[in-house]
Amino acid sequence: MNIMLLALSAALINNVVLSQFLGICAFLGVSKKSRSAVGMGFAVTFVLTLASLVCGIIYHFLLVPFGLEYLKTIAFILIVAALVQFVEMFLKKFVKSLYDALGIYLPLITTNCAVLGVALLNVQKDYDILTGTVYGFFTAIGFLISIAILSYIREKMEFNNVPKAFQGFPIVMITAALMSIAFFGFSSF
C-alpha cells in the first residue's frame, strides 16, 4: 500500500471529523479558542498514534491467536482508557512541560470516539500494525487541521451579528457544514 496515498487519504480526503463524524464532541466542544483547540489537536495526535499501535499489537498477538476477535470492542476501550491514564502519569513525572501543555485535554480523550473508531477501522480494513499506526497518525493530523481551522473561524465569528436562535451551537454546525463542503473538493481531483 502506498503510504503517501494512505496519508493523504486519511488526513484530507476522508477527514475524520468532516466526513466520518468521529470526534465531533471534542471538535465542537474545545474549538472556541484557537489555543485550546490546537492543544487538544496535539493531545489527540499523541494518543491516537499510540493507541493504534498498542491496539494493533494486542489484536494481532493476543486476540487473533486465541480466537478472541469478538472481544475487540471491550479490549480496545479498556486499552484506550488505560493508555490515557499511563500517558498522563508518564508525562506528569518525566515530561513536565508537555504535561502542562496537554494535561487538561488528556482525560477528555477517553470519550473521544475518534480514538476507538480508528482502532476498529484498522481491524475492519485489515491493516497490519505499521500501516495502522501510520493511518492513525495521519487521521489525527486531519483532526488537528480541522479543529484548528474551525477555532480560527469561531474566533473571527465572535465579532459577527448572528441571529439569536442561531447563536452558539447552530452557527458552529453551519460553519462545519461549509468546511465539510470545502473538504469534499479533495475527493474529486
Binding site: A165, F166, A177
Partner: peptide, 16 residues
C-alpha cells in the same frame, strides 16, 4: 456529510 451538519444546525436553531 455536509447535509448532516446543515440539517442538525437548523433543527437546533428551531429548538432554540
Amino acid at each position: 456529510a455536509p447535509g448532516a451538519f446543515l440539517v442538525m444546525a437548523f433543527f437546533v436553531a428551531v429548538m432554540n
